[in-house]
């Protein structure tokens, strides 16, 4: 089982919901678009934490 933890709460933390809010025409995007976007946000988080806490 792949572990998931809750999303980070922050004014600047990227989320698909914010993308859609800023770009309403993306509202009906295929599921893979959202999934791949969220995977890339996870990678961004890992990269930032490498700079911040390592």
């Amino acid at each position: 089982m792949i572990i998931k933890v809750p999303e980070i709460k922050s004014e600047i933390y990227p989320s698909w919901e914010k993308v859609v809010e800023d770009n309403p025409h993306l509202k009906n995007s295929p599921e893979i678009v959202k999934k791949n976007y969220e995977d890339s946000v996870d990678e961004l988080f890992d990269a930032i934490m490498l700079l911040a806490a390592f």
Binding site: M1, I3, K4, V5, I8, F45, M49
Partner: peptide, 13 residues
């Protein structure tokens, strides 16, 4: 929450 996410998010249990 940030350090917990760093520890186990997307890790296989």
């Amino acid at each position: 929450p940030l350090m917990l996410k760093k520890a186990i998010h997307n890790v296989e249990s």
